[in-house]
Design a binder for these strands. Structure first.
Length: 259
DNA sequence: CGATGCCCCTGAGAGC
DNA sequence: TGCTCTCAGGGGCATC
């Protein structure tokens, strides 16, 4: 929605993961969105006058874009509605309210957490493999936890970490610091592949995720291990996929091909 | 400072 | 049908 002017903003619920600023609507109303930036799992909107806001979808959030001639009827958990001067409506819906919406300054947002500490973008053209290796070497946590840590590398979630580790043949329990340079290089390649494929498929619609036009993503049909406990992966004839819990989250892996 | 556990919240699905 | 239990794409905060 770059170039569009925010004509009206309605915040139906302010008690998201972080409380929506009291002056959120007042600051942004009438402003034109100059640029949209994605950094890790965050979307940053920057306005002409130097104000801006951050949006994070949490676990269950989604953004819907309605055409000007669409009849919009609010549904449960529609927490924020931006009506643009063009008549387009941008609706943020988030049942679990783990999402975030808050004001930032175009000048300083990069210097503030979480952005100041965030790792590199895995899909960046100038990605520094050496920096990734050093981050891994400096972590004594399991590789699974390291990859979920947004300070190590940006934007990976539970699904894509499981899938990338499977493709790399690395057990999620292996210690981050024990991952060799060659393995790290290979892992990074698989991380990039998984992300590119998932994006091309419109993401993974397990329950809440939908694209901005309301359509589903279909990368969930291409999972090798995620959510497949007790099944066999594409490389094994026998049942090989196990589930364990690491730092409170499920890890799925192939017991035969990952070590 | 780094690692870990817990918690925030709603809804879907399984099992009884 | 309805209750209870478990689990879910994330991240921040307290605690050690």
């Amino acid at each position: 929605m770059c170039g569009y002017i925010m004509h009206d903003i309605i915040i139906a619920r302010r008690d998201l993961r972080r409380v929506v600023d009291d002056d959120f609507e007042a600051v942004l109303k009438g402003q034109r969105i100059k640029s949209l930036i994605r950094r890790g799992k965050y979307i940053i909107a920057i306005c002409d006058n130097g104000c801006g806001f951050v949006l994070h979808l949490g676990m269950s959030g989604r953004i819907a874009i309605h055409a000007p001639d669409d009849v919009y009827t609010p549904v449960k958990h529609d927490h924020a509605v931006f009506t643009m001067e063009s008549g387009h409506r941008i609706v943020f819906n988030d049942p679990r309210r783990f999402g975030m919406l808050y004001l930032i300054s175009a000048e300083t947002w990069r210097e503030e957490v979480p952005f100041s500490k965030m790792g590199e973008e895995p899909l960046a053209d100038d990605l520094d493999v050496g920096a990734f290796c050093r981050m891994l070497r400096g972590k004594k946590a399991p590789i699974k936890a390291a990859l979920l840590d947004q300070r190590v590398i940006a934007g990976l979630g539970n699904i894509y970490v499981c899938e990338a580790l499977y493709r790399s043949g690395i057990l999620p329990t292996r210690l981050s610091k024990d991952i060799g340079v060659e393995e790290a290089d290979d892992l990074l390649g698989h991380i990039r592949d998984v992300l590119r494929e998932a994006i091309a498929s419109g993401g993974s619609s397990l329950r809440d995720h939908k694209q901005t036009d309301g359509s589903m993503g279909y990368f969930q049909h291409h999972f090798d291990v995620y959510g497949k406990e007790g099944e066999s992966c594409g490389r094994c004839d026998s049942i090989c996929i196990k589930r364990i819990v690491q730092s409170g989250r499920s890890s799925f892996f192939c017991a035969n091909t990952q070590s």
